[in-house]
Amino acid sequence: MTTPSLPPVRVLLDPIVRENPITLQVLGVCSALAVTRTLATALVMSASVTAVLIGSSVAISLLRNDVPRSVRLIIEITVIATLVIVVDQVLQAFFWELSRDLSVFVGLIITNCVILGRAETFSMHNPPGRSALDALGNGLGYTWILLGVGGIRELLGSGALLGQPILPLVEDGGWFQPIALMLRPPSAFFLIGVLIWCLRSASLARARSRSLTANAPLPASTGSPTR
């Protein structure tokens, strides 16, 4: 999907919407769903993932010419696991409360497919600078989905953002009745499902209008690149 001839700006910007890791490549959804109950956890999680992603991309890109293909997976996992341990220790040292809330999900960054996916498909074939840009782009793409879903869930589920009350709750004499379902797991599936629906429809519409102006037949891309 990414060719070496792509200008650096595209390397950075493409993953944010057009090649978004979560909605279009459907990678790394585990943590995207699990930590979006409140905005604060989503924020910390996306910052951690972005940091690990950039670190591992640069490291693996630097190592790419010295690693034999047969052992590359174990090397990649080791690099990622080491970085995750660092992040985990930093969180435990400075943000003890949040690291409790995130529980096992910081550790699970290791198995986050976005990171291994970028290492496999991009960093193994590109120099460190481009890999860092690609990692930053993917990190930002991951971040805005997490923040969006986290924001909606916290706002509708408890009428607050980052713990600050925004909508006056009924129990405090306001008008807003919090939607308890938003705090439960299924709502994350629904929100991401609807989000994917919107983004896919938008990209289909774009493809259609482009093919109409070019007077070419409709691209047969109605199916999704499911993995």
Partner: peptide, 10 residues
Amino acid sequence: GLRGMGLTFL
């Protein structure tokens, strides 16, 4: 737009 992943998520 819902076919594939979107529908699966729902």
